[in-house]
Design a protein around this nucleic acid. Structure first.
Length: 210
DNA sequence: TGAATGATGCGCT
DNA sequence: GCGCATCATTCAT
């Protein structure tokens, strides 16, 4: 968890950055409210941002699909810490997934960021990704991390600092769709996947119930 | 248009 | 060794 030294070009004064209190609440609540927020990453090559449109909740040791279900390990230890940190893990030999740790310290839970709409830093993302089409750049958790250049090296980053964080840039309501989570075996009954119904950037439709 | 599969490497039993 | 919070490709309908 290196604290990358990068200069923030965020304007001083009134900040839109979400604070610790946003994350240290009920995971389902945080998951729904993350929709429409902007994910910002100060990549070594420049600023990248995207509007989050699809998430999933993984909640505590009683959720069999949650990485914390079988206790604390080196990999998942970030989830047991305070909310407002990044939990990034390596999966399927070639992809990474980005999560925001939620709930107060010792309660292991997180929100998986599954898809977003590209905003700033398009060229950087296109350089990082073999995909050139904007619509496909961030439409899936593995692709999102690849385009952003996020890996385990960034796991544990404090989202209240200036490298990786969330911003509130819009007001108004979002029409939220609710389905089962993708790609899991246990806990598949829970409707803990949330997405912006108006967005076309959600991950490819597989077999969702609603 | 949807199901099946291979790629690829780490974390944990 | 086995399984995995994925994705792109291949093959069948």
């Amino acid at each position: 968890m290196p604290e990358t030294k990068l200069v923030s070009n965020r304007p001083t004064g009134k900040t839109k950055k979400l604070a610790r209190e946003f994350y240290e609440r009920s995971t389902l609540q945080v998951a729904k409210e993350v929709l429409g927020k902007h994910l910002v990453f100060h990549h070594p090559k420049g600023k990248i941002s995207a509007r989050i449109v699809e998430v999933e909740a993984y909640i505590g040791s009683n959720d069999p699909a949650c990485h914390a279900a079988r206790g604390k390990t080196h990999r998942n230890s970030v989830m047991f810490g305070p909310g407002g940190h990044a939990y990034i893990y390596f999966i399927y030999g070639m992809y990474h997934c980005l999560n925001f740790v939620t709930e107060p310290e010792t309660f292991p839970a997180a929100v998986l960021i599954r898809a977003a709409e590209p905003d700033e830093g398009l060229e950087i993302m296109q350089t990082n990704s073999p995909d050139k089409k904007l619509s496909a750049l961030l439409s899936g958790p593995g692709k999102l991390c690849r385009a952003f250049g996020l890996s385990r090296d960034q796991s544990g980053l404090d989202l209240t600092k200036n490298t990786l964080y969330l911003e509130r840039r819009e007001n108004g309501r979002i029409e939220i769709g609710k389905t089962t989570r993708v790609g899991i075996k246990d806990g598949a009954d829970k409707l803990w996947r949330f997405y912006d119904k108006k967005s076309s950037a959600v991950s490819p439709l597989r077999k969702f119930r609603n």
